[in-house]
Design a protein around this nucleic acid. Sequence first.
DNA 1: AAGCTCGTCAACCCTCACGTTGATCGACCT
DNA 2: AGGTCGATCAACGTGAGGGTTGACGAGCTT
Lengths: 211, 211
Amino acid sequence: MAQRRTAARKEGSPAYLEKLSQVVAAAAVVFKEKGYETATLNDVAEMIGTDRASLYYYVGSKEELLRDAVRDIATVNTEAARQIMMTEVPPREKINQFITKILLSYDANYPQVFVFLEQDLGKLTLEDNAWARSMILQVRKIEGIIMEMLQEGVADGSFRADLNVEYVAKALWGMLNWTHRWYKPTPADQAREIADTFSGLFLDGLATSLP
Amino acid sequence: MAQRRTAARKEGSPAYLEKLSQVVAAAAVVFKEKGYETATLNDVAEMIGTDRASLYYYVGSKEELLRDAVRDIATVNTEAARQIMMTEVPPREKINQFITKILLSYDANYPQVFVFLEQDLGKLTLEDNAWARSMILQVRKIEGIIMEMLQEGVADGSFRADLNVEYVAKALWGMLNWTHRWYKPTPADQAREIADTFSGLFLDGLATSLP
DNA sequence: AAGCTCGTCAACCCTCACGTTGATCGACCT
DNA sequence: AGGTCGATCAACGTGAGGGTTGACGAGCTT
């Protein structure tokens, strides 16, 4: 079976590829809904009205399915962050753009991106394979970029200097990532509104400037 | 065996109770470390140097162990929130106190509280039992209290009125709860510093008031 | 019609982890 | 010494779910 799969994959007929991506998409939905551990391949198969065994014609294992589902998600985000980092705008604007870009990306890449976020990277540390290491690295990197942006602002005086930058970064990252517990895409342009709220909050705070 | 357990539990000798709580504590550590699904009862047993089967002398099932581990965590938090809500201080101060209290409680109740946070309540909806429903209710309640505090501030003019209160609440809640991905208690009084950072950030924002 | 390829599915195996049972063993009485 | 009780552990049952196999059939080619 493994041979027939790799053969089909190498040939790469459009029909095959389409079904493959359909399988991966279904898996993403199921993983997001029930969590990777709890979800069964049966759930995935049922969602697209086929048999569990048939999945193996398209994918080699449950774990491969997970990797396929979250493939590129991490890099998409770090790439976005890097680009913003490099543009020549004030730190304040960078943060604003970053928040917006991330939340729009979460919206556009729903639900796989949330499957990705649910993978607790602290727990991935326990596993020892190239994929896990790469994931961890990606996330470290993005956190590093956030801290850079913050420090830039502190340096040029546009951000307060009295706060521990690391905790500020964690706060922002938490605000953004906690969305995986509640956000669901809607026809309306909700992600943008959330981005504006988070941005306004994070930069200017909740309190009015009144005495 | 079930009879022997309930018998022992009813009698409640100090030694028995102590070992029971030792088992629950070990379970909390393991669940936090590896996640409830991934963790095995063997892991728990090993941690306290005993046999898996022996656990059943103290607890009826893996799920019961989970419930024991997170017991009261939810109520402790809602109770804290309720108390703060009722005190007669300005909204700004309420938020500050709330953030501090929650983070200190997360520190004090490590790691069970993080085991609790890892239980995705959205996924609990899929299960249908009294415990799950009660958990969901608790969390709803605390989110409700946060929104009340925010609205109070908007009403008296100390908080901005241009932001969607629900999103603001989610932002705060995310900031606080994301700690379960990175926070580890230390001898130092770190939780308090984090609370001050989050509080300062959330209320006054990151930007300096300079033009 | 014969044969081939592609995709499917019934039936199976295997592992792992939850949960049970009954024997065992030390400690503490009597 | 013999009995009892509290606690433990070896051994087993069980079920769920991941992964494999081989045959079958629809549609194509020759």
